[in-house]
Design a protein around this nucleic acid. Structure first.
Lengths: 235, 235
DNA sequence: GGGTAAAGTCTACATTGTAGATAAGGCAGT
DNA sequence: ACTGCCTTATCTACAATGTAGACTTTACCC
């Protein structure tokens, strides 16, 4: 039933350009973005590229590695200036950028936060470790002693990831019917057990992720600064 | 090759007690804890219970629902005192308890943080929403106006989730060879690109999650308190 | 008994990741 | 032009998975 003309819905004129890790990952990302992580099957991706599924194994050891590759790919979009003298401001913009990145690839967020859990730090794709390294540089250049820099990084990135998870949870439905659906969902809850939550429906509907993030960062950074502070290097 | 005597490695004498959602979920949790989420297949769970895999569908709509059930199950272990007059202390102990819970079920953490992403708030298992409701109660009782309570909750829980993700990342290998393996892993990194990270190997090895969490919570709570504060209700 | 509902089982199928053997193209050297 | 070789891609095949749908067993009530 499949004539040799029947190709995947994709570009390649026939079987020509020799494919490359970049193209594979790019298409994979595209797929994840549009249809979710589960839609990224070897067969589907192969079809999308107009190639046999098996050819993919030349560019990634297996499906898991392919997913790692995708997360690495998007993390490369996150640029960090380790030389920025205003470290607080730099951390703030990194936070904003990471947030935007997550909003641009919501389907990828589960992978972003979850993959590291199954790979010891030293064995992760280099692209995923680069932000860590650069932020450490930033903090050390700002005067923190290395071990304190690590603390700051952890609190900072922890909060950042937490925020992203939070924000995406409340964003699932498209903002148009967001409120309606949300109320509908909440309406299902037993009123005696969930009075607070139900009463907060309007507040939940007008969630402002950027502000929320920003204020959190402010609090955290000033707190960290006074607690650890740069004093260790100042004497 | 399978005599009728050959049962799953499990308890049930033969096919006797009529099974129940609780037993199913309990075994499922056991399985996840010991062998990871991927090991929880319908067939394996069925075998573990000495029943046909298909029987499970009486107690959960499908595999996803089963996983939801498991997360709900463990979250029920998290007890919260919404009446506690010392709200900061209460939030701190909740944090500690959630952390312990995560350390007790590390394989479940990906689910814990990820499932909510694919289910609109109102449609989640009630067990997963209860902590939210109770913490809101706690904060409102403490004098926060409801919308501020929501802010506090978000910052707090966001940070908490972020911390847990952080801590579990660095814990994967057993603490014995932790340091060795870690160094090994880090040694793989190109020195020119990752000098900070490599230099921090020792610091990474002696990570104290409890402290890290505790200090973060302190900072966050005092920050939130002064920023929003209870002033709205004080006048 | 006979009937009814619940609990459990059997069979079957479509989909998945991926091993292993096989081909198809390009490019060297002679 | 032929031969060998290496990279890239394909084909075939298999075991494992979730789950639909029909069936069987069990318990119990009148």
């Amino acid at each position: 039933m499949d004539s040799p003309e029947t190709r995947g819905a994709s570009a390649q004129p026939r079987s020509k350009t020799p494919l490359s890790r970049e193209t594979v990952l790019a298409k994979a990302l595209e797929l994840v973005d549009s249809d979710g992580v589960d839609a990224l099957t070897m067969r589907r991706l192969g079809q999308e590229l107009g190639r046999d599924p098996m050819s993919l194994y030349r560019y990634a050891e297996n499906r898991a590695a392919l997913l790692d590759g995708v997360t690495e790919l998007v993390l490369d979009d996150l640029c960090i200036e380790p030389e920025d003298p205003d470290w607080k401001e730099q951390l703030r913009t990194i936070a904003h950028n990471l947030r935007l990145l997550a909003l641009r690839h919501p389907n990828l967020v589960p992978l972003l936060v979850t993959r590291p859990l199954s790979t010891p730090l030293g064995l992760r794709p280099l692209g995923t470790l680069r932000p860590l390294e650069q932020i450490l540089s930033l903090l050390i250049a700002a005067g923190f002693k290395p071990s304190d820099a690590l603390h700051v990084y952890r609190a900072y990135y922890g909060f950042l990831y937490g925020h992203i998870l939070n924000e995406l949870q409340e964003f699932i439905v498209d903002p148009e019917e967001n409120e309606a659906l949300l109320r509908l969902g909440l309406h299902r809850l037993p009123p005696k057990e969930f009075p607070r939550l139900r009463a907060l429906a309007p507040a939940l509907a007008e969630y402002d992720g950027l502000n929320e993030l920003d204020q959190g960062i402010t609090i955290l950074l000033s707190g960290l600064e006074t607690q650890l502070s740069l004093k260790a290097n100042r004497s």
